Simulated scan of single mutants.
Amino acid sequence: MRRKKTDFLWIGVFVVLVAFAIPWFLWADATTWLGLPVWLWWHIGWMALASLAFALFARGAWDRGMNVDPDEVGVDG
């Protein structure tokens, strides 16, 4: 059951990442911070968050989803 819970958690994480990847609510905003529009900072931060999420996903869920034994590929865990 734990595996199914984790799978649904990752699905939820990636749905949220995709849903907020484009900041539609900031497009009409002309506010700038450090010389760049706020919507561009949103993209920079969101891509950092997406990279972190993918790194965590690749650490365990990917191998499990692909039926790869972590000992087989030399991953400590």
Score class of each variant (00 low, 15 high):
2 R>C: 07
6 T>L: 11
7 D>P: 00
8 F>W: 13
11 I>L: 15
11 I>T: 11
16 V>K: 00
17 L>N: 05
17 L>P: 00
19 A>F: 13
21 A>F: 13
22 I>E: 13
22 I>P: 02
22 I>A: 11
23 P>C: 06
23 P>G: 08
25 F>V: 12
25 F>A: 10
25 F>Y: 06
27 W>G: 04
29 D>Y: 03
30 A>V: 06
33 W>P: 01
33 W>M: 14
33 W>F: 15
35 G>N: 04
38 V>H: 00
38 V>L: 15
39 W>L: 04
40 L>R: 04
40 L>W: 06
41 W>D: 03
48 A>W: 07
49 L>K: 00
50 A>V: 09
51 S>N: 08
52 L>W: 12
53 A>M: 08
53 A>K: 02
55 A>K: 09
56 L>S: 14
57 F>W: 12
58 A>G: 01
58 A>P: 03
58 A>W: 10
59 R>H: 12
60 G>W: 04
61 A>I: 01
62 W>G: 00
62 W>H: 07
66 M>F: 13
66 M>K: 09
68 V>S: 02
68 V>E: 02
68 V>C: 03
71 D>E: 14
71 D>Y: 01
71 D>M: 06
72 E>G: 05
73 V>P: 00
73 V>L: 07
73 V>Q: 03
75 V>R: 08
76 D>R: 05
76 D>M: 07
